[in-house]
């Protein structure tokens, strides 16, 4: 029984780190900053959460602390990428040539 839980946990670890790897790959392949943020935040958040679930299978007694880390990341990860995307858009970071539309028009004048 213990071994089975260990194997499930280890598989979760591998799945989670695979998503981290895909996030890293997206970071390299995507053509502009906004798409890089997209691939960065999404893949890494799920990746970390899967890793935390895997660690919970391997050491059930750590469950509470691991879920606190997960909860924290679930709130902070999207926030930091939103703040960064906002700042990048405001200072006019170049968008990829593939970009179709941009309905966000910056107000004239100096940034706050």
């Amino acid at each position: 029984m213990k071994t089975l839980l260990d194997v499930i946990g280890a598989l979760f670890l591998v799945a989670g780190t695979s998503f981290l790897f895909l996030g890293g790959l997206g970071l390299i392949r995507m053509p502009d900053l906004f798409n890089r943020i997209q691939s960065g935040t999404k893949a890494t958040t799920l990746g970390t959460i899967l890793t935390l679930i895997g660690a919970t299978f391997l050491r059930p007694e750590w469950g509470i602390k691991l879920s606190l880390i997960g909860l924290f990341l679930l709130f902070t990860n999207p926030l930091s990428s939103q703040v960064l995307a906002r700042a990048a858009h405001r200072i006019g970071v170049e968008k990829s040539a593939k970009t179709k539309v941009d309905l966000l028009v910056e107000p004239p004048g100096d940034p706050r």
Partner: peptide, 26 residues
């Protein structure tokens, strides 16, 4: 949604043509 979004992004990142069509909508 989180799982679906990740699988979709994985597909985009792994595909050789990189089928993206980005933009900012309101």
């Amino acid at each position: 949604e989180l799982i679906r979004s990740n699988i979709r992004m994985a597909g985009v990142v792994l595909s050789p043509r990189l089928p993206i069509n980005p933009g900012i909508v309101k």
